[in-house]
Design a protein around this nucleic acid. Structure first.
Lengths: 339, 339
DNA sequence: TTGTAAGCGTTATCAA
DNA sequence: TTGATAACGCTTACAA
């Protein structure tokens, strides 16, 4: 009695009832008398009864837990998505297990296995930049664990998806640079196999082409990761050539700051000599000098929608086989780092 | 058979064994024959058997889950701590459930209840800035859930603690400002009831006093939250008075950037007219212009140690009643925002 | 309106 | 060396 938590049985004994009656009373079963219901609920309250989720889970073959796999949490981008997810899932019966893959395919696979072993009811995932194959996600689906992919697409994977029109965001940014008079627009692209990298790159290329601007290979560099340091070397390559670009469209805000750093170091004035545009609209980007022009994405909404789609699927017992694909529109935000 | 996951029983049936034998074989019980062990393990491998953690949890009254409560995850500070925790806990049998209180006492209480209901085996927590009472943590302890507090102290709460010598960090920073010739050193403090706020403030006050500098009330302002925007108003109050400070020691890097922002706007040169020092050493602080002087904290180590202490306690069945209190030393990092 | 009993998947105890 | 059984806490037919 002193040991361990209060159980249904404890309440049953104290009230001279059977555990099943207590269970039904707490679950507002119609066949239970009002007086017993009240008595049970009162005692449960007093004893601070908390149903054991493991017993429930075992019985219902559900963990009531949703796994969330993100590449990292330091950026506002992913942490805002997580906030969106939490705000939707929080009020429900589900718990969230946040896992960080550190942009590593291997860690992602490990996490997926772990979550699968845990019997999570569903998974929200934005794949690592190193992720090229999606077997691990398909294994989840084989185990009837629904997967919702967000932000970074997994081409070929049949699942619900909540994405951003990266192509449009990039196109907007580059077309704006063109219209502002830039003639030599460079691109600092992301890790090569990411869908976001590809789509933004395509937006960049198409914007140039549609505006009859030449595509110059030496104006395209790719970073290996998304942190400031990852951008320094590629930015140097871009800015240390004889025919210096007069604009850089960067894969994200961090990399844009790498470009700003190198540009300043090389004595270039921003935006007079070179315009710089990022992607993501990280909060602190506003406070750099000059403040960074960038492409905003509806991150919070993405998180919420991803969670809602998963919850709906769980509610419907994962029967619907028609997967949803939702695509959000990003928006260019012009600040002081561009003309 | 087709439905649901592979269980011990499935394996047992296929091999004409009893479930208990299979269980023992998988757990390398000495009394099981080598040949059966091999057969069982092989089949388990083939069938991709994954033990059901809920069954185990029910039996052992353990969830094998550790709850982590942090006020936010956007700062490098907390996300690095989380990384430290993950790196220690990841290789063990335990899972981590990361929860974000959004600096709100109410949300923190809700999270604690949720984790308690979940039967987490232990909790690592850094309290919200709104948290003044610690009953919710004491309730956990009553339920024999060990609590390790990190970074932000809970005065009066008996538990393991992993803290930083904020006093020393602040003292170092302010004394350095004094030695560099600043005469009018202001402080942008944090939310009032946080231990970190108090200790850094005391370090600031003592450094002034020990160096025979006057303490001027009008040079002390407090922010309500830790984001850039929270710092703008207090920074204005500090910098829009007639006798403008020639140095600001800010509670963290975000707030320091608020001060930088207002200082620049007011036409002050940094560091010629005013020195600014932050706290936390956020990675992007290096890339502001001028790069920010700040106080570094061993965040990753803090996360690792907190996790290790909790794991140790779990291993020892939470018997030891002598709580550990570990205090890390922070270090001043001088960059370009100060003389 | 309430109680009984079975079962979810696993391990530990006892017996064989 | 292995098997049968009970137990963990809960829900749900089925019975009363």
């Amino acid at each position: 009695m002193r040991k361990g938590r209060v159980t249904l049985k404890d309440i049953a004994v104290k009230l001279n009832l059977s555990p099943s009656t207590v269970s039904r009373a707490l679950n507002d079963h119609p066949a239970i008398g009002d007086s017993t219901k009240k008595a049970v609920k009162r005692l449960a309250e007093v004893l601070d009864y908390q149903p054991n989720p493991m017993a429930l889970g075992l019985l219902q073959k559900k963990s009531h837990t949703i796994g969330v796999i993100v590449p990292e949490i330091t950026s506002h981008f992913f942490s805002a998505i997580i906030t969106g997810i939490q705000d939707v899932v929080g009020p429900t019966q589900y718990n969230i297990m946040i896992c960080i893959s550190n942009e590593s395919f291997e860690e992602e696979v490990t996490l997926v296995k772990k979550l699968s072993r845990m019997r999570v009811d569903g998974i929200l995932v934005s794949p690592a930049s190193g992720t090229k194959s999606f077997e691990h996600f398909q294994n989840l689906q084989k185990n009837e664990i629904p997967v919702v992919v967000f932000d970074r697409d997994c081409p070929g994977l049949d699942s619900d998806k909540v994405l951003v029109d990266d192509y449009s965001g990039a196109y907007q940014a580059v077309e704006y640079l063109i219209h502002s008079g830039c003639k030599k627009i460079a691109h600092l692209g992301g890790p090569l196999n990411l869908s976001t990298t590809k789509h933004r790159m395509q937006g960049y290329l198409d914007a140039l082409e549609k505006n009859n601007m030449p595509i110059r290979k030496e104006y395209i560099q790719h970073v290996q990761g998304f942190s400031h340091n990852d951008g320094l070397k590629p930015a140097k390559k871009l800015l240390n050539q004889t025919d210096v670009p007069d604009a850089i469209f960067a894969i994200n805000d961090n990399i844009a700051t790498s470009a700003m750093h190198i540009a300043k170091k090389n004595g270039l004035r921003i935006p007079e000599d070179i315009s710089i545009v990022g992607f993501d609209d990280e909060p602190h980007s506003t406070y750099f000098s000059p403040s960074l022009s960038t492409v905003w994405q509806p991150v919070y909404s993405m998180g919420m929608l991803s969670a809602r789609i998963l919850l709906k699927r769980l509610k419907d017992n994962n029967v619907a086989k028609n997967f949803r694909e939702e695509i959000f529109k990003p928006e260019l935000v012009v600040r002081a780092s561009s003309k």
